[in-house]
Nucleic acid binder design. Structure first.
Lengths: 131, 131
DNA sequence: TACTATTATTTGTATATACAACTATTTAAA
DNA sequence: TTTAAATAGTTGTATATACAAATAATAGTA
């Protein structure tokens, strides 16, 4: 089980990377960016929850995206808000394309039904597992 | 899908780490070690295939396990053979216990049937995905 | 009001893993 | 037999991610 889920994740990762190549971002970065574009001012803590990643990982991602001029952080007191730059907003349609590409890519390989079921199963399983 | 498989893998990883704590090895290292114990002289290339990991990753793992005196490498010409040390052989029963613990741990959380099905699904999926 | 506890985020450091380039060796072809 | 191609493994370097400790700010309590 352990190795299966790992191997699967790695292969998925590879497939996903392909689809996101055209924006030169890793899937995780792109996903974070999309959330920030759709919800400007979102806080790192929220991102961490939504993406099921630790706060430190989120910080690292934001740093990268800030370097690339896709995001800016504005900190006031203990809370930080993350905003997309115009450059990021301009990229948004392309990001959605990538999501679509990825969808198509794996649906093609796996077939719709099967992959849907599996997705469901993984969700259920992940929900049951402790954080 | 991408995030589900990733999140699942990360949670699995965590659960597995718990189970392997008592031998102070990561699941991947332990798995490699078990193969080497059961098939003394196994070559890195074979390990790489069986574990679905790149050769470089396998090299790194073997290095770690060599440091810990669980494995030795004997290179002749272009091929390398990996042998378990007595220390490793002595550890074998404990390693199997860990496998068992992990099995129990996730079967308990997920229920037998469901987890079995899911495992199957993941296998099928992983097989279809390109390397 | 001062003291403590909680919350939000960042930083330092470590691990798993990959890719691409490199080395060494063996095999095949000319 | 010299040369080219294939094979096996290692090394340099990079990415994603985590944990634990540090920092800073706010809230809650005495």
């Amino acid at each position: 089980m352990y190795f299966s889920s790992n191997a699967l994740a790695r292969k998925m990762e590879k497939l996903a990377n392909e689809s996101w190549k055209k924006v030169d971002l890793s899937p995780s970065h792109a996903y974070l960016l999309m959330i920030a574009i759709e919800d400007p001012g979102v806080q790192p803590g929220t991102l961490s929850n939504e993406m099921q990643l630790t706060p430190s990982t989120v910080t690292r991602f934001i740093e990268k995206l800030e370097e690339k001029k896709f995001l800016v952080r504005i900190t006031e007191g203990k809370i930080t808000n993350v905003y997309p730059t115009p450059k990021a907003k301009k990229l948004f349609p392309k990001l959605k394309e990538c999501v679509n590409d990825f969808f198509k890519a794996y649906a093609k390989i796996l077939g719709k039904d099967e992959s849907f079921e599996l997705l469901n199963g993984m969700h259920k399983l992940a929900d049951k597992l402790p954080d």
